[in-house]
Computed example of a mutant assay.
Amino acid sequence: MSEWIVNMMTSLGYLGIGLLMFLENLFPPIPSELIMPLAGFTVQQGKMNFGYAVLAGIIGTMLGAFPWYYLGKLLGEARLQALADRYGRWLGISGHDISKVCTWFNRYGNRAVFFGRLVPGIRTLISIPAGISAMPIIPFVLYSTIGTTLWVLLLTGAGYLLAEKYTLVDDYLGPVSKFVLLALVLGFLIWVGLRQWSRRAS
Rank of each mutant, 00 (worst) to 15 (best):
L91S: 08
G92A: 05
G92V: 10
L75M: 12
Y69F: 15
C102D: 09
P67I: 12
L80V: 04
Y70K: 10
G95N: 09
Q81V: 04
K73H: 05
L75P: 04
D97C: 00
K100D: 10
K73F: 06
Y70L: 12
I93N: 08
G95F: 10
G92Q: 08
G72W: 08
L75Y: 07
F105V: 00
L80C: 04
R89G: 15
L74N: 04
A78E: 05
Y69I: 03
G72S: 04
W104Y: 10
E77V: 09
W90T: 05
L71V: 13
W68Y: 09
S94H: 05
R89D: 13
L74Q: 05
I93W: 12
G76R: 06
L75R: 04
A84W: 13
I98V: 15
K100M: 14
A84V: 13
A84L: 09
S94P: 01
W90R: 15
W90E: 07
F105C: 00
G76P: 04
W68F: 15
L91P: 05
V101R: 12
K100C: 03
I98R: 02
D97T: 01
D97N: 06
G95A: 12
L74G: 06
R79I: 08
A82C: 02
L83H: 10
G92H: 06
G76Y: 02
G72H: 03
K100P: 01
A78R: 08
L74R: 11
W104C: 03
P67A: 02
D85N: 08
G76N: 02
P67W: 12
A78N: 09
C102A: 12
F105T: 00
K100Y: 02
G72C: 03
P67K: 06
I93R: 12
E77P: 01
Q81P: 07
Q81S: 07
I98K: 04
G72V: 03
R86W: 11
Y70D: 12
P67T: 06
L91F: 15
E77R: 08
W104R: 01
K100R: 15
K100Q: 14
K73P: 02
L74C: 07
T103N: 01
A82R: 08
I98S: 03
D85K: 01
A82I: 00
I98M: 11
E77L: 08
A82K: 11
G76D: 00
K73M: 10
Y69G: 03
L75A: 05
I93H: 07
W104Q: 00
D85A: 00
A78Y: 07
T103K: 07
Y87H: 15
